[in-house]
Design a protein around this nucleic acid. Sequence first.
RNA 1: GGGUAGGUGGCAGAGUGGUCAAUUGCACCAGGCUGUAAACCUGGCCUCUCACGAGUUCGGGGGUUCGAAUCCCUCCCUACCCA
Length: 370
Amino acid sequence: MAFAFQLQATNGAARAGLVTTTHGPIETPVFMPVGTQGTVKGLTPEMVRDAGAQIILGNTYHLALRPGDELIRDLGGLHKFMNWPGPILTDSGGFQVFSLATQVKITDEGAKFRSHIDGSPLELTPERAVEIQQNLGSDIAMVLDECPSLKETTPAKVRAAVDRTIHWAARCKAHHTRTDQVLFAIVQGGLDINLRATCATELVAMDFPGYALGGFSVGEAPEAMHAALPACAALLPEGKPRYLMGVGRPQDLLAGVASGIDMFDCVMPTRNGRNALAFTADGPIRLRNAKHRRDSTPVESGCGCYCCANYSRAYLHHLFSAEEMLGPTLLSLHNVAFYLRLMREARQAITEGRFEAFHAGCLARWNTAS
RNA sequence: GGGUAGGUGGCAGAGUGGUCAAUUGCACCAGGCUGUAAACCUGGCCUCUCACGAGUUCGGGGGUUCGAAUCCCUCCCUACCCA
């Protein structure tokens, strides 16, 4: 099946669309749960699917290190290996250049890592990043990019990252051969719209099937990102999917949708779920807090997920208090379901031409929450 | 009745003349988490104060000393051993 993107409705800058991939369709805007090491932490693929997920993430760096991309290829590819039959997007390892910065040396050739597991060397060149992702067999692969921290950075560093990201994107594209997989480019440039424009122009000229905004939520104020998003999204081709990488909180996702972004991923629902924080329509709640000890109501009333349909806040409080593994599982499930529902509702609102009101209504409820 | 070892902040348990409002762990309270080195990390946890700081603490009482959780006397209590 050929990759395709169909724009179905717009409402202001917000878009509703349909992405078609080798392993199935994706209705956008969409949230993609993160399964870095070939698992959405704490959840079985069946739970992820039942929560409404259409596509999940895997990670080049982590899977190449363990168990190894060739092993996964030999065992039939990542879909089969992890028992997720739907679409998979793999990140390139570019983010690890940022998150594992203390173990990385970057040159024009590529990024030289020292494994966070055993210290052994791993060189991630653009070519190698593509090779790994082709071995994994994901539906959407990402180019290797340089993602600089925006905390205490300098314009020169951001500019250098842009230049490198452009060159690496060209090398990735030249090396990419798998026809049942598409390769998305990543726009860097920090909060500088001119740099973003330069980067986007160069990448758009190379004609990728999809484009991502990288380098956000890496130390800058959330308001700064929100302010930059509309102009940055507008730099990307209208007829191709737009992906805001690594973002974010529920209000960040809606800011992205309002700006014309189609795809999002973030570890927040699963990581925060493991850490006892639940997202709800009335704002986040911390299940470890004493006030939930005797609360017989569900985590989020009105939520149809397995967690909310069957368990009380008091029970979740107990599970986290006793450090039972079911607690992280149930809250991860709820949070993923919440994010997916949020995007479904946003899509619905866009198709019905009332996204702005929907957006404002969500923010009002979150902000007035106790 | 005799002997021995002990009684420290919610619990466990350091400290054994000044650097002690008292190490540490647990429990408890709160916060953080944005393309996952995170089922993790941070802070608080005697009383009053936003804070600086002040005031009361180491079984009870008394004493030695410039100074005591730490030394002495005495009383109370606990565990174990012997009768």
